[in-house]
Write a protein that binds this DNA or RNA. Structure first.
Length: 132
DNA sequence: CAATTGACTTGAT
DNA sequence: TATCAAGCCAATT
């Protein structure tokens, strides 16, 4: 019995696993979640987070050019950069990050595990969930 | 259910 | 490097 989870939930689940000092671009997040063209939804999911909600390390998600992509909120953009720099991520004088250096590459099976976990599936054997 | 909305991406100029 | 136009798709209204 898999819990019905929205694409948003999967996005949050994956983003929560990005290690400190590493980043993922929107398109990559979507790709890892098997929606290769869903980059915009990833951005949508990030924007849906309430300001001040840091339960999801949203600052580790940037665009494919290696730049911060927040619109409409200079505060958030500045916060994102500050948080990344605090984790050791270096920015270009043009505001670019070297993706070849900071892009996170999850190990084999890791994403699958994250997805299963988000859905409430057991991690090892197939056991029944308590009926709700 | 149809239309609208986006923290995107890619290719061309 | 900066701009523009198209394509894509889940969540919102």
């Amino acid at each position: 019995m898999t819990k019905p989870v929205s694409f948003n939930e999967l996005i949050y689940a994956l983003v929560r696993h990005i290690p400190s000092g590493k980043v993922l671009n929107y398109g990559r997040v979507a790709e890892l979640l098997e929606v290769p063209q869903g980059a915009r939804e990833v951005g949508w999911a990030m924007s849906a987070l309430k300001y001040g909600d840091h339960s999801v390390p949203w600052h580790r998600v940037i665009n494919a050019q290696g730049r911060i992509s927040i619109k409409g909120s200079p505060e958030s953009a500045a916060e994102q950069r500050a948080r990344l720099e605090a984790e050791g991520v270096e920015f270009d004088e043009k505001g670019y990050i070297d993706l070849s250096r900071y892009l996170w590459t999850p190990g084999w099976g890791v994403v699958d595990m994250i997805i299963r976990q988000a859905r409430g599936e057991s991690l090892e054997t197939d056991n029944d969930e308590p009926s709700g």
